[in-house]
């Protein structure tokens, strides 16, 4: 079995199984553990409903924090959007998703895919440099750096595979798929779960404050 056979077969296979099982496990494990009912009378009759708006209202920091946070917020948006475009926009990724789900859509030209990949990687570098430069702001632990690593690895290896840098194409493709397998397998257990948690944490905060008549 070649490295590519291993990557495309058992490695990505088990990584996907861990991703699905782990994500559902963590989601259920936390969401079923509901808070006890707040017995106080809500200050606002539509408090809960208004609380859910927080999911969107917190998509950008409040005005008071603009100066302090616009760099990382802007850069984070650039990273997330560019990464999303790369993940669902380039043809090999669409083919991979089609192989799993049957769904298919038109892809971007390679040049656009490479451009977004480079933008994603550059913004990710910008973010980690800020994190390193301002340790007091972030209070990083190894989980933050590991999450960064498992996210950066597929971007680096994917660009290298496309550009034929490093080992032969099929080996580089295998390394790229293995890096994605690592990302999938780690996803449910690290900070990457914020992909799901951000909705619930914002909503929970919004509802809790709205119950008390505070709009955030």
């Amino acid at each position: 079995m070649s490295l590519l056979d291993f990557a495309r077969g058992p490695a990505i296979h088990w990584a996907l199984i861990i991703l699905v099982a782990g994500t559902i496990w963590r989601l259920l494990g936390v969401l079923v553990l509901t808070r006890g009912a707040d017995l106080s009378r809500p200050r606002d009759a539509f408090g809960n409903f208004k609380g859910y708006r927080t999911v969107f209202s917190r998509a950008w920091p409040s005005g008071e924090f603009t100066t302090a946070t616009r760099y990382q917020t802007g850069m984070a948006y650039v990273f997330h959007i560019a990464t999303l475009i790369v993940v669902i926009g380039i043809v090999p990724h669409i083919e991979f998703i089609t192989g799993l789900t049957g769904a298919s859509w038109p892809g971007l030209p390679n040049a656009a895919g490479v451009a977004f990949g480079i933008i994603a990687l550059a913004s990710l570098l910008a973010l980690i440099l800020r994190r390193i430069a301002k340790p007091a702001v972030y209070c990083s632990n190894w989980g933050d750096y590991f999450a960064w690593f498992v996210m950066a690895a597929p971007l680096v290896t994917g660009l290298m595979a496309f550009a034929h840098i490093g080992p032969r194409y099929e080996t580089m493709l295998a390394i790229h798929i293995l890096s994605v397998a690592l990302l999938f397998a780690w996803f449910p257990f690290g900070k990457l779960m914020h992909s799901f948690w951000f909705i619930f944490s914002r909503a929970q905060s919004g509802v809790a404050y709205a119950h008390k008549g505070v709009r955030i």
């Binding site: 056979d5 296979h13 199984i17 090999p92 799993l100």
Partner: peptide
């Protein structure tokens, strides 16, 4: 195609779920 994973996905992913 080259990037397609080489395994039957549906049932196994459902079991994983």
């Amino acid at each position: 195609s080259v990037p397609m994973a080489q395994f039957g996905s549906g049932p196994k992913i459902a079991v994983a779920g």
